[in-house]
Amino acid sequence: MNIETGAPPRASADRAVRFDGTWQEFLPIALTNLLLTIVTLGIYRFWAQARVRRYLWSRTTIIDDQLQWTGTGGEMFIGFLMVIGVLIASVAAIFGIAFVVGEWFLFVGLFAFYIFIFWALNFAQFRALRYRLSRTYWRGIRGGSDDNGVTYGWYAFGRFLAVGLTGGIMTPWALVENWNDRMNAMSFGPHRLESSVTTEGLYVRWFAVIGAYIVGLFGFALIGERVGGELGIGVGVIAFAGAIVVVLTAFWALFFRKVAAGFEMGGLAAGFEVSTADWLKFYAKIIGLTIITLGFGALMWRFWRWEFVMDRLALYGEIDLDQLTQSNTAAPKDAEGFADAFDIGAF
């Protein structure tokens, strides 16, 4: 099957990636989810998540078939319980041992626990991606990974440690390496996902972020002093926050363009030509809509983000459907337990 139809116009039937969900369909899902999450004191959120994904996936067409989400709320809830259990047991064990061998162990144990948490945050991000791929079907084929993510957790932890030690300067490197490592460990059907993103261009924008922080802080003080009073502080804060938002968006916009361009899978390539201005316009739109709807628009954020990304994601190349056979990776049992426990996403 030849699908050199990745390029815009957006949302046209020719596109390889299409999203045809409607807010009229999504809003009832989001509303009932909110309602049930409130009345169950939050426990329903796993089932809510499954319903949202089932909907978004089912309205997303890749070439000629909709994605299918087969994950369930129950498995995500169990995964979450497992992880919470591990965390509670760890802390209990540390205090228990300290009770027996003495207070010094509390220090050692809790230090080790914090290291474990930082490892687990990265591990969780890996597992979340792996879980999502394993529950995503297209033409009856799913993705997954045979890597358990344990090693990745340590590598990613080490990179962020380097970032911390260099005062944030190495952030682009850590983000890119971690992204590549995660992607390269994944597969869809028999095809490995391949990611070869480089930091080229990212450093310039990252230094702009750091610069904006520094300049912003000085500028903030300066404006505050010149204009004076509450007005001065107000203007300063807005100028500072505005500058940060713009440079950070510029950084992430390039990052996502690069990760899409660096992606390959079984003869397929991707593109995501979204500029900083596009992102800013998008966020201005959803924030505006949220204000106009007195906050209810927040229920639609998930939908709008998905729509925004899917409308702009392009696929190029050819895929041989006869060669795209079922994945033989193990389907993870812990779902997104770690990711849910720490409340982080797959990307």
Binding site: I29, T32, L35, L36, W69, T70
Partner: peptide, 22 residues
Amino acid sequence: GGGGNIIGRETMVAAVTVTVAG
């Protein structure tokens, strides 16, 4: 069953019932 059921009527009824009862 699991998969395509976007808005289950039972879920809706349960949600409304629990909320009203609460």
